[in-house]
Design a protein around this nucleic acid. Sequence first.
DNA 1: CTTGAAACCGGATAGCT
DNA 2: AGCTATCCGGTTTCAAG
Lengths: 153, 153
Amino acid sequence: MFDETDRRILGLLQADADMPIAEIAGQVGLSASPCWRRIKRMEEAGLISRRVVLVDRVIAKVPLTIFAGVRVPSHSVDWLERFRRVIADIPEIVEAYRLAGEMDYLMRIVVPSIEIYDHVYKQLIAQLEFRDVTSSISMEEMKFTTAVPLHYL
Amino acid sequence: MFDETDRRILGLLQADADMPIAEIAGQVGLSASPCWRRIKRMEEAGLISRRVVLVDRVIAKVPLTIFAGVRVPSHSVDWLERFRRVIADIPEIVEAYRLAGEMDYLMRIVVPSIEIYDHVYKQLIAQLEFRDVTSSISMEEMKFTTAVPLHYL
DNA sequence: CTTGAAACCGGATAGCT
DNA sequence: AGCTATCCGGTTTCAAG
């Protein structure tokens, strides 16, 4: 379905989506049109889902990352769906996962400061019941990439 | 520095980086050139850091997300720097944070399966000492966005 | 000093070999 | 797969508010 050349092209695009096709083609040893056709094919297959701009968190005034692990009072489908709706509407919550194990859910939240985090926290507990919420502050983002490993493809 | 119009433009670009400028301009009630100039300004200011393609994790065969929280044996700068180098070289580790509190570090790891996660885990403990590693499997990605909240800007 | 219209230009797209 | 022709959208310029 996809070969090593596709993976190399995709690797470049995961790093920089507006690299000119001519340059990508050059780096993978192809001329522009076949390279372009491969990209098109990866888009049509849904492998490339979309292109986005990445915003600098410090300049956007949301330098702080906080993780909130929560445990639920009741393991009901109803609670899950209400939780889903609540987190969808809070832009500070950028990631949320339902976990197997100790914690029921884990969220990554980006905010300007601890004070503002408290607002988000209150917003959360005002809308839903929780058994408990454990917040961990990130002191340093050591690695963050939107690029997924491609060698299993 | 940046006003509501900039935020609206940026919001659109965070959702879809290749929306034509003419359409963005239309949506924010501007014509193409001033809109283009605003985007340029946000790029030059570093607010827009770059554009990337987002890859579908299921199609790329890495559907599984696992969180690994670790505690260190020794709180030394040396250990931290070695850790930094190790995680930089493992593409399955897509995020890593140094935390304040119970856990010392938290990583988000994307893999095809638990079996492959075990490889990554072994790769990790082969290169560094850990006091302990706690892994949590994600059953469901409920929310994931690269878009940061813009209303603090 | 900022906007919008319009001309320009380059790279993305499509057809053909 | 690669070459070439077309075309569309980003970029620049310039006149007007």
